[in-house]
Design a protein around this nucleic acid. Sequence first.
DNA 1: CTGTATCCTGCTAGATACTG
DNA 2: CAGTATCTAGCAGGATACAG
Lengths: 141, 141
Amino acid sequence: MSPPPAKRPRSKNPHGATEPCLAVRDVLTRVGDKWSVLVVGSLGDGPLRFSDLKRGIEGISQRMLTLTLRGLERDGLVTRTQYPTVPPRVEYALTPLGHTLLDPVQELAKWALQSRAAIQTARGRYDKKPKPPPPTGPTRR
Amino acid sequence: MSPPPAKRPRSKNPHGATEPCLAVRDVLTRVGDKWSVLVVGSLGDGPLRFSDLKRGIEGISQRMLTLTLRGLERDGLVTRTQYPTVPPRVEYALTPLGHTLLDPVQELAKWALQSRAAIQTARGRYDKKPKPPPPTGPTRR
DNA sequence: CTGTATCCTGCTAGATACTG
DNA sequence: CAGTATCTAGCAGGATACAG
């Protein structure tokens, strides 16, 4: 039998183990998608109907709103309440868990607003620099 | 000439204007991608070399690490310092702006760790329910 | 060691049309 | 009003090979 190829003992990460990383990535894929945060933010003020959400979030398509809401519902962050009236009326609201997300997200939003200018300045500067010069002379990035 | 089709006066959003949304989305696309947060987190303890980052972040490919670092550099969140030694040695570090991002991100990470269990429970519950029943009888979701 | 250049795949998300 | 069903384009991201 050939000896087992020694599975990489895995040096522990300096900033935490592998476990937390997975959790963070997991959350980030939910929260980091194009619309989830905006939906959660919209619901922060209280329950809203489907069409109100759609109107409130400029640019979202019906499809994406549905998908986003399903995802959030699945994760236990929002509830869906359907009133059997005609025409149908469905309300979405944050769960307690969903509310706890509101805080970190607003932190991030605050950062975004504060840093927006700085970031755009940095981008402008960076985008002007790239000097891939002619083969003559030492290329210096 | 045909009259301009009246550009939709746009009702103002209840949770803020359209402006902030753009900023938030902008940040989210940077922060919400698969690796940026982990890179920033890794650099939180201090500067690191390329290969150290690669080793520290389990599962990232060379390509994505490079791309992520370029993006962060462009946005003024990290600096790249190249020592003209042989072999080449490049160190990445957070800028002051980058450090300010560390805080909100860690908030979110904390939330992720705390809520992980609850979310997975919710998912399990949700994934069991879907009852697309036989065509006989009133389908009730 | 630190990248860049290709190739290739799957998913994300938009547009549109149709149903209860 | 509230959703589902399709179709499709674009791009994020992985593997690999090569270069300074």
